[in-house]
Structures are given as C-alpha cells and as structure tokens.
C-alpha cells in the first residue's frame, strides 16, 4: 500500500494511535485501509462507466459485453415457428428458407408460398394449430407479421450476403456455424431468440481477428474496419 511504502515517520504513529478521538469519536481505521478504500471507490466508479449503462441496447444483462451467453427475451410471434423441428430435426439448410441471405443485405423472412410449397404436401401435420394458422394467412393472402428478433439500430448496415458468401461459399464452413456465429444455435430453439450482443464492440472483435485472405492461402488480414462499412 502507498501508506506502507511511505512509512518514514514511525515516530508519530504511536501517539496517534494512542490518541483516541479528539472529537470524541473513535476513528480507528488504519491509514492504509483508508487509501485502499479510496482506490476501491475510484475503481468502482470507473467500472460503472465501463459498464456503460448509458449505451443503447437496453440495460445491462440484455447483452453482455463479450457477447455471449445472454439468451434474449422470448418474443411472441404470430406463429410459434419451431426452428428445432425444421433446422434441428430435419436438418434443413438455413438458406433453404432464408434464401435472401446470400444475395441481399437482409436475410429476409421466407415468402409465404415457400412455406406452402412444402406444407401443402405434408398431410400429416395439417391439423396442427400452428399449421392451421399458416393456412389461414395463406388463404387470406396476408403476409405474416413476424416480430424482429435480431434488430440493429437504423444507422447500422449489416450485409448478410458478404458474410454468407465469405464464410459459407468460400470457406465452406458448415451453415450452422456460419449463421450460428451471430444467431446462436437456432436449431435448438423454437422461435429464435437473441444470443449474441450484436453491439459495435462485438462486431469489431470479430473484424479485428486475423482471417485468411483467400481460402487456402496463408496470408491473413483482419476484416474491413471502415466506419462507413456498417454506419450509414
């Protein structure tokens, strides 16, 4: 401690300790402890700032600073879509339904006739309440008002196409890894829930990593870090 290392005035200590309180109060905390307390308070204060209660993205806990392990809230969807059945049990490729992901900024919700393409043929489940709802929308030619789960602020552009092209088509990573890096293991959920922070630092932490420049090459570089890549 600072006090200890300075200790060049041992002579005085005894008097002071013997002193008791001149003002009638027994104030016995040691000098070193007090300094320690000050440091503790300073540290707590600065960690409060680090915790960023002011930052957009909701209160602490709705996202973690390292971006992992905070399963977001359950979102009421018009149809409780079972991802675990489709992607999990039946092992349908994510991009079979989210077909726009490889060619557009947005991955997109599958068009309604995509759902119908299969479910028209699957007689066995037609009487299930979820499928009934689906047919209802189809018959009314109404789009399904899905709720957004992985929502980014409006000043942020995220390009699905580039990420899918890079990691799925070029690097041939498994689709569940490619998508799951940001979306979590959707195949184990029913309706999707946010798993990753999707915060700026989280994005950058990945863009700062060394990636192979080309498949099979040994040259590495980090992802692009131009502000205008993501900020619009």
């Amino acid at each position: 401690m600072v006090g200890g290392s300075v200790g060049y005035r041992q002579g005085f200590h005894h008097v002071d300790e013997a002193a008791g309180g001149y003002y009638g109060r027994n104030f016995r905390m040691s000098h070193a402890k007090k300094i320690f307390l000050w440091f503790l308070m300073f540290w707590m204060g600065s960690s409060l700032v680090l915790a960023e209660p002011f930052v957009q993205g909701g209160p602490i806990g709705s996202q973690t600073s390292d971006g992992y392990d905070a399963l977001g809230p359950v979102v009421e969807q018009p149809i409780e879509f079972p991802h675990n059945r489709h992607a999990g049990d039946m092992k349908i490729n994510c991009m079979y339904c989210h077909t726009y992901a490889r060619r557009s900024n947005v991955s997109g919700i599958p068009r309604l006739d995509k759902c119908m393409g299969c479910h028209n043929l699957i007689e066995g489940v037609k009487d299930r309440p979820r499928i009934k709802k689906l047919f209802e929308y189809w018959e009314n030619k109404q789009p399904i008002p899905w709720k957004k789960v992985h929502d980014l602020p409006d000043f942020v552009r995220f390009n699905h196409e580039r990420h899918i092209q890079r990691f799925y088509f070029q690097e041939k990573r498994p689709i569940r890894e490619t998508c799951g890096y940001c979306h979590g293991d959707v195949a184990s959920m029913t309706t999707a829930r946010r798993v990753k922070a999707l915060s700026m630092g989280w994005c950058i932490s990945c863009h700062q990593k060394d990636h192979l420049e080309k498949v099979g090459s040994s040259v590495t570089s980090h992802g692009p870090n131009d502000c205008w890549l993501c900020h619009k």
Partner: peptide, 13 residues
Amino acid sequence: HSPDGLNTQVYNR
C-alpha cells in the same frame, strides 16, 4: 478518412 478516399461522417458518433 475512409480507405477509398472519402471524408466520412458517422452520424451516431
């Protein structure tokens, strides 16, 4: 300054 020579403005910053 962006890598492609533009003078950028990040509104949210």
